[in-house]
Write a protein that binds this DNA or RNA. Structure first.
Length: 417
RNA sequence: GGAGGGAUACCUAAGCGGCCAACGGGGGCUGACUGUAAAUCAGCUGGUUUUACCUUCGUAGGUUCGAAUCCUACUCCCUCCA
C-alpha cells in the first residue's frame, strides 16, 4: 500500500527526538507497531518530516458544561508540545455531538441539553482552551462538528452505519455493562462513536487529520475514526490516549457532571483551596499528570507537597503573583485560622436581624429556616468570631459585623439604610 | 402484539396497615481533632409559628378510626417472547 521511500538518518534522528518528547505521559499509542519499527506516531513524524508538512492533531471536546477542568489540560498540554514542535492543532468543539452526549463511562442516558446552552458553553470553551494552547492561526485551527454533521443526510448516515457491526458496539464496555445491568441504551447513543469517527473524515478533508487525542475512555471512539477512515480509503489517523485524572474525591475520574473538578477559570483562591482538599493518596498521580516537577523535588510532607502542587496549578492559570497570594491567604486563613481581610459585603433590612435564624437565611447561607437552625445548633455559626448556639436570639450587634457559617461562608453584614 | 417485573427523599436501597418524616450505604453539611478544605471520630441531612402541626413514598381515586404499605384506573420504565 505504501510506496515507501527510505528516510534519511537525519529524518530518523529528528523523528526520534520529537517522538521522545511527545510520547511522554501518554497512556497508549495506536497502532502500537508501525512500519519504521516503532509505533504509529513515529511513522507520522517521519512522514511529516519527509513531506515537510506539519501534523494535524484533533482533540474533540463536547461543550456539555460551562467549564473545562484541569483534567482536560493533560491532553491540552500535550497539544501544546506538538505546537511547540511546529505542528498544527485542531481543537474540535462538539457542538453537534453534545446534543447526544457521549455514552462513554456512563451507565445511563445523558439528559439532553438545549442548543442555546451548548452554544453558550462552547463560547467559554474557546477562551479556556487557549489558556493552555497557543491561539496562533498558523498553529491552531478551531473547528465545530456541527458544520458537517448537520449536513449529513439519512442516506449518508446509513452508509456510515454499514461500516460497523452491532457486535462491535456491544463489545464496548459501557454498552456491555449497561446491557448486563438492564440499563436502557437508546439507539442514538450507538451513533455517537460513528459521529466522532465521521468528524475525523470531515476534518481530514478540510485540514487533514493525522492524530486524534483522547482520554483512555475515548480509545474505542477514537479507533472508530481509524476504522471509518480506512473504509473510506483515506489514510487513517493514529490515536494517542492520555490517563484520566482522578477528581477531588480521589476515586472517580474528574468530571464535569460529577462536580469533583477544578475548572480552569476558577479564581486562584478556589483553585488553591480545592487542590489542598484532595486526599493524600492522590498526590503522586496529580504531580505526574499535571506538573513538570520531578519526583526528587516533591516535598515528602503531604501538606507541603500539596501546597507546592496547588501553587503550581494556580500559577499556570493565573500567574506566579496570584498563586503566591492564594497560598498566603490559605495559610493565614486555615493554618493560622485568621479571618480573611476582604469579606464580601452584605446589607440586609432591619427585619433580617429579628433572630439569628433569620439572619442566616437572609444572608443566603441556608436555604430554609430549619437548615439555618441546624447549623446554629451544631455550632457552625459565628458572629464577630463568637460562636452562638441560640437560633432564636435576636441579633443586636452594632453593624457592620462579620457573620461566618461553616468554614467557607463569610460576610460583612450591615444594615440597609 | 403477548407475558412478567418495577416506580420510595440528592443517588442507592429497605419498609409491605398504626412504633414512618420513613433502616442501611453513598454523597453533602456541621463540629472535634490535626499536618490542609487530607485522614480519623461524632452529629446532622423535608418544611413551619418546632415538646405540636403541615407536605412528602409515580399520578388520580377508593377501602379503613388509620395507608409508602390493601383495592381500582392511569402514566412511565425495564426484561423476555413475537
Amino acid at each position: 500500500m505504501n510506496t515507501k521511500v527510505t528516510p534519511s538518518k537525519e529524518v530518523l534522528a529528528e523523528a526520534a527526538r520529537q517522538h521522545a518528547i511527545l510520547s511522554e505521559g501518554t497512556a497508549g499509542i495506536y497502532p502500537e507497531k508501525g512500519v519504521h519499527g516503532k509505533d504509529g506516531l513515529f511513522d507520522k513524524l517521519v512522514k511529516s518530516l519527509m513531506e515537510n508538512r506539519p501534523l494535524r492533531i484533533k482533540l474533540g471536546m463536547d461543550p456539555t458544561a460551562p467549564d473545562i477542568h484541569i483534567g482536560h489540560t493533560v491532553a491540552l498540554n500535550a497539544m501544546r508540545k506538538f505546537q511547540d514542535l511546529g505542528h498544527i492543532v485542531l481543537p474540535l468543539i462538539g457542538n453537534y455531538t453534545a446534543l447526544i452526549g457521549d455514552p462513554s463511562g456512563r451507565n445511563s442516558t445523558r439528559p439532553p441539553l438545549t442548543e442555546e446552552q451548548i452554544m453558550q458553553n462552547a463560547e467559554t470553551y474557546k477562551e479556556q482552551i487557549f489558556k493552555v494552547i497557543q491561539n496562533d492561526p498558523a498553529k491552531c485551527k478551531l473547528m465545530w462538528n456541527g458544520d458537517w454533521l448537520k449536513e449529513l443526510s439519512f442516506a449518508d448516515t446509513i452508509k456510515l452505519c454499514a461500516q460497523v457491526s452491532v457486535a462491535q458496539l456491544i463489545a464496548k464496555e459501557d454498552f456491555g455493562n449497561r446491557l448486563a445491568n438492564q440499563t436502557p441504551i437508546s439507539l442514538h447513543e450507538f451513533l455517537y462513536p460513528l459521529m466522532q469517527g465521521y468528524d475525523s473524515i470531515a476534518m481530514f478533508e478540510r485540514e487533514g487529520c493525522d492524530i486524534e487525542f483522547g482520554g483512555t475512555d475515548q480509545t474505542f471512539n477514537c479507533l472508530m475514526g481509524r476504522q471509518l477512515m480506512q473504509a473510506r480509503g483515506i489514510e487513517p489517523q493514529i490515536v494517542m490516549t492520555f490517563p484520566l485524572l482522578e477528581g477531588l474525591d480521589g476515586v472517580m475520574k474528574m468530571s464535569k457532571s460529577k462536580g469533583n473538578y477544578i475548572g480552569v477559570t476558577e479564581n486562584p483562591t478556589d483553585m488553591f483551596g480545592k487542590t489542598m482538599s484532595i486526599p493524600d493518596s492522590l498526590l503522586d498521580r496529580w504531580y505526574s499528570l499535571l506538573t513538570t516537577i520531578p519526583a526528587a523535588e516533591r516535598p515528602s510532607h503531604p501538606m507541603e507537597a500539596k501546597k507546592k502542587l496547588a501553587h503550581f496549578i494556580t500559577a499556570r492559570f493565573h500567574g506566579e503573583t496570584a498563586a503566591d497570594e492564594a497560598k498566603a491567604a490559605f495559610e493565614s486563613r486555615f493554618s493560622k485560622r485568621e479571618m480573611p481581610t476582604d469579606l464580601p459585603e452584605l446589607s440586609l433590612p432591619q427585619e433580617a436581624f429579628a433572630t439569628l435564624t433569620d439572619l442566616v437565611v437572609a444572608a443566603n447561607f441556608a436555604t430554609s429556616k430549619s437548615e439555618a437552625r441546624r447549623l446554629i445548633e451544631q455550632g457552625g455559626v459565628k458572629l464577630n468570631g463568637e460562636q452562638s448556639k441560640d437560633p432564636t436570639a435576636p441579633v443586636k450587634l452594632p453593624t457592620p459585623f462579620t457573620l461566618q457559617v461553616g468554614k467557607l461562608k463569610l460576610a460583612k453584614v450591615s444594615l440597609t439604610a
